[in-house]
């Protein structure tokens, strides 16, 4: 199990398109992944509804936990996705 904390890069936070890209990447990774806002309860990162319901905004710090599969590769890929601004 590996985890990392990352700052959200998308201008409008983790909603709509950025949330879709993120949950798609989680679902296709095959690993069990959770995401939590600092101090919040971790939720299933493959669930777009659970992710957008976290109300994660631009600049928020979130913690990603990856369990199973090629953990480090998956984590790197997800962290990169989250820190990129997809609303440009």
């Amino acid at each position: 199990m590996v985890e990392r904390t990352v700052r959200i890069g998308s201008t409008h936070g983790l909603h709509a398109r950025p949330a879709k890209l993120f949950t798609q990447a989680v679902a296709s990774s095959g690993a069990a992944v959770t995401i939590s806002k600092s101090g919040g309860t971790p939720v299933n990162a493959a669930s777009i509804l659970a992710v957008i319901a976290q109300g994660i905004d631009h600049g928020d710090d979130v913690t990603i936990v990856v369990d199973g599969g090629d953990e480090h590769v998956v984590l790197d890929r997800l962290v990169e996705l989250l820190s990129t601004d997809h609303d440009e």
């Binding site: 709509a16 398109r17 879709k20 939720v43 299933n44 669930s47 777009i48 509804l49 659970a50």
Partner: peptide, 16 residues
């Protein structure tokens, strides 16, 4: 397309 793909994912969302 992005919007509709996101909706398609919501329809099969594991939490839902």
């Amino acid at each position: 397309q992005d919007v509709l793909e996101a909706q398609a994912m919501m329809a099969e969302d594991p939490s839902l």
